[in-house]
Amino acid sequence: MCTAFVSIDPASAVPVLLLSVRDEYAGRRWAPPDHHWPGHPTAVGGLDLVAGGTWLAVEPGTGPGNPAAAACLLNGFGTMAPAGARLSRGELPLIAVRDGGIGHLDLDRYDPFHLVLAGPAGARVLSWGGSGSRLEELDLPAGLSVVLNDGLEGLAANRTASELVSSLMAARSAHFRARFGATPRPEPQPGGGEDVAEAWGAWRPIVSGDGLEPDDPAALIQRREFGDGRIWGSSSISLLAFGPSGVRYDFGPAPTAGPADGGWRRVV
Rank of each mutant, 00 (worst) to 15 (best):
W37L: 11
P188D: 09
S245D: 14
G76E: 04
G84I: 00
S162A: 10
L140Q: 02
V146G: 10
L117I: 12
I231G: 09
P244T: 00
W30R: 14
A142T: 09
A4N: 12
R185C: 14
L47I: 06
G76C: 07
A170W: 07
Y249L: 01
F5T: 02
P255T: 13
T183F: 10
S88V: 13
R22Q: 11
V50K: 13
G119I: 11
D106F: 06
H40F: 15
A202D: 15
R185F: 08
P253D: 13
H104K: 09
C72E: 05
G78S: 08
G122T: 02
R134L: 10
V58P: 10
S245H: 05
A26R: 12
S235F: 05
A11T: 15
A70T: 09
P190S: 05
D250S: 07
P190N: 05
L105D: 11
R266L: 08
A202H: 12
E163M: 07
R172L: 01
P60G: 06
V14T: 15
R159A: 13
L94H: 04
A96T: 00
R179Q: 14
T183Y: 04
L138H: 14
F5R: 05
W128H: 04
E213V: 02
L19M: 12
P60T: 03
G201P: 10
N158Q: 15
A118K: 02
L240Y: 09
E137R: 06
D210M: 08
S131W: 04
D261Q: 11
T54F: 04
A178T: 15
D111P: 14
